[in-house]
Design a protein around this nucleic acid. Structure first.
Lengths: 189, 189
DNA sequence: CCCATTTGCCTAAAGATTTTAGGCAAATGC
DNA sequence: GCATTTGCCTAAAATCTTTAGGCAAATGGG
């Protein structure tokens, strides 16, 4: 019999694609096996279990997202950087809703500490350098930015904004503008 | 044999409790049957299926949350109202993490339109009356508030803030203060 | 109070997913 | 060329979802 060429890598990648197609919570070992036209048990040589598979997809998504943000941030500062960060975040979520959900998968502390989530925090702090905040304000601001971006994207994805005529893109710009103004006003001094 | 006294109501309520104990995604028809010491099939006379059960739990959570917010808002305006709204929201999520997750369950549009989610939007707009915003700013602001609150609570629940020494309560207050200042600065005129 | 109807929970059964254990064949390397 | 490793398989058990049909308990009219 011809081998399918399964790999932890390929499974993770295919799982991410599957997530975007049918939703992260529908990503199942069985569905993935079907996609490779392989028996379910075969996957268990490459991933420990269902939770392990989901964790790997989550880590992949966090990496991708961090890469995008890093790209978007290159050479920018201040409000430019803030807007670029925000857009990179939102665009990724819209292009890859399943992966985005995956990125929100609850990781155990050790895994999270070794994940690209750390880069996200660093990049957020990098943006805030443009606003010259001192601790603990900087931490508050990191949390606020994370909350707004995550919250907005999450609500938009779940259709929460679809019943009003106002263009979500306009709201997004308005929010980014507002955050910029807010951070500037909080500048130490 | 003695009857267990199952009801759609009781199942929904028990499902909500179960969600708080083991997580919303672990709420299963089987687990609920065990809790009532009843055979699984018996539940299907009271709820259509697993999705129906989850939807009912979601609607219950939305109601409870809206009730709390309404209570918190009574007799308050301006920043007081904003802070009360924010705290009611966060407190509910911390006391009932499973129900809070349930409240984020994706409802189909018709169900959502008939849910307490509508009251949430109305109450948010009520708060904003204190800031005298004109459209479309008001809609942008509604979206921003929803995003921040949801995003913050969601990140806090998932342990996203646990690796820093800064007290989440302080960040929360800082954010509420900031939002208040922001909205005041956006007041029309 | 009796009996018919409704209601409530049950048994039975089929389909899906997760996970473990052990086997055979293909790839790899000396 | 052969031994080892690797990869996918069959088999099987546990859990969950859902449907169909049955018996007993509650209910209510005569």
């Amino acid at each position: 019999m011809v081998r399918a060429g399964l790999t932890t890598e390929r499974l993770t990648r295919a799982g991410a694609e599957l997530a975007d197609e049918v939703g992260f919570d529908q990503v199942t070992v069985s569905a993935l096996a079907r996609r490779f036209d392989v028996k379910v048990a075969s996957l268990y040589s490459h991933v420990k279990n269902s939770h392990d598979l989901k964790t790997r997809i989550a880590l992949l998504a966090l990496e991708e997202l961090a890469d995008r943000v890093a790209d978007a941030l290159a050479g920018r500062a201040g409000k430019d950087a803030l807007a670029a960060f925000a857009d990179a975040y939102r665009d990724y979520a819209r292009e890859h809703p399943g992966r985005y959900d995956a990125a929100r998968f609850r990781l155990d502390p050790d895994t999270a500490a070794a994940s690209a989530g750390v880069r996200h925090a660093q990049m957020t702090r990098a943006i805030l350098r443009g606003y010259d905040l001192t601790e603990p304000d900087q931490t508050h601001a990191v949390r606020m930015l994370g909350s707004v971006f995550h919250g907005y994207v999450s609500l938009e994805l779940s259709g929460g904004f679809s019943h009003t005529a106002v263009d979500p893109q306009e709201s997004w710009s308005w929010i980014v503008d507002s955050l910029d103004a807010l951070l500037r006003s909080r500048t130490s001094g």
